[in-house]
């Protein structure tokens, strides 16, 4: 069983190495994700964010504008995920001490 798992990890690594050999070179300016029109003919949002972020919000940090303005509903969802994680920890560990006292 252990050798099967090791074989699985090696196969996974080799598959990823094979797939990575077809990826474009890192950092070239004419990569697909840096062009203005994607393969399917729709505009790519990355360029719009860089060009219009300062005009839209007067904020030099483009990451902040994307986080707080363009994708703000996404950020609201992330914040609710963090809040829910805190609530789950609170509810899971709330009665731990009382349970130990009841066991004794």
């Amino acid at each position: 069983m252990k050798y099967l798992k090791l074989l699985l990890i090696i196969a996974f690594t080799l598959l990823l190495l094979f797939a990575a050999s077809d990826l474009p070179y890192r950092g070239e300016a004419d990569n697909q994700m840096n062009q203005e029109i994607s393969m399917t003919g729709t505009p790519v949002p990355g360029n719009y964010y860089i060009q219009e972020a300062y005009n839209d919000a007067h904020t030099p940090n483009i990451v902040t504008v994307i986080l707080g303005d363009y994708r703000s509903i996404d950020t609201l969802g992330e914040q609710i995920v963090i809040f829910t994680a805190g609530l789950i920890v609170f509810l899971l560990l709330r009665n731990r001490k009382e349970d130990e006292e009841n066991d004794q």
Partner: peptide, 16 residues
Amino acid sequence: AADLRYWGILIIELGI
């Protein structure tokens, strides 16, 4: 409008 977006982003960052 653009300055309102500036302040709106600041308010939600405080909440986060």
